[in-house]
């Protein structure tokens, strides 16, 4: 990204804080509209920017274009030497010549039992590849600056650039998006180089930045991502639900840091 010489010619993106030339209408780093009002609720949740159809932004030497609005597609034109990784089932189409490889992960049996893919796929440039998940919602673009660490709920990760390292952990006692107990958290870490991470949020996505020690209780199915500085604990509410008098559990998030939520989720069973 080329920065103009004068401060007054720059527009700061309200979503990722990147500086943009005054002539741009969308952020060159994350695609957020620069000419739209920042939507923040009375309670402090900022709505993730609605990416305009066909919005394009750059990372490394490659470009990403987000197409469609109901179930958006992220189409990436990978330059030579660039690569992205993803769960294999989110691949919508690819150029025949674009090479694929696999990233081996530990804990394969646990991941399989948790409904997580055992292998993460990698697409290499040059070539075009496109990704989408299978539900209406939003593509959330999160540029990760050097030395950032972000935790993302299972089944939300769409694609990440090669400069980001990936690991995962299991959070016990948190309701899984499918069923059963426990939730996998995907962990994305950058070291010396900036990277870009794309998530799929089911429904609408909102973000709130918690202050030091500030707490918020979130339905586990609605949780989407958090800075690793945000502590997450399962807390039982003082109410019983259903015929079997199940306890009601919420995820207690304690700042400092960002928390992202999605408005559509598979909720608790009523029985």
């Amino acid at each position: 990204m080329v920065l103009p010489s004068r401060d007054m010619d720059r527009i700061e993106c309200q979503w990722c804080k990147a500086q943009n030339d005054s002539g741009q209408t969308t952020c060159g780093t994350c695609g957020a509209p620069l000419d739209a009002r920042n939507l923040v609720s009375d309670s402090g949740w900022k709505e993730a920017p609605r990416l305009k159809d066909m919005t394009e932004f750059k990372f490394s030497n490659s470009t990403c274009q987000v197409e469609g609005e109901l179930v958006p597609v992220a189409e990436i034109n990978l330059a030579q030497g660039d690569s992205v990784f993803f769960e294999h089932h989110v691949l919508l189409w690819k150029d025949e010549a674009a090479p694929l490889s696999a990233m081996s992960l530990g804990g394969g049996m646990k991941r399989m039992l948790g409904g997580m893919p055992m292998v993460i796929s990698i697409a290499h440039g040059p070539g075009r590849v496109a990704f989408s998940r299978d539900a209406s919602g939003e593509v959330v673009v999160l540029p990760l600056h050097p030395s950032m660490e972000l935790d993302v709920r299972e089944h939300a990760f769409l694609v990440a650039s090669h400069s980001i390292s990936y690991s995962f952990e299991r959070i016990k006692g948190m309701t899984n998006v499918l069923h059963g107990e426990g939730m996998y958290l995907d962990r994305f870490v950058t070291t010396g180089e900036q990277g870009i991470l794309l998530l799929h949020g089911y429904g609408n996505v909102f973000q709130r930045t918690l202050g030091e020690g500030e707490k918020i209780l979130v339905e586990p199915g609605g949780f989407l991502y958090k800075d690793s500085s945000v502590q997450m604990n399962t807390v039982q509410q003082n109410v019983k639900t259903g015929l079997m008098r199940h306890g009601m559990y919420l995820a207690e998030m304690t700042g400092p840091g960002r928390v992202g939520i999605q408005s559509m989720y598979v909720h608790h069973h009523s029985e």
Partner: peptide, 17 residues
């Protein structure tokens, strides 16, 4: 409301059955 509709809440809100 039905309990399965809760998305998030501030800790100051009192919920009873």
């Amino acid at each position: 409301f039905s309990h399965h509709c809760v998305l998030w809440t501030e800790p100051t809100v009192q919920m009873t059955a």
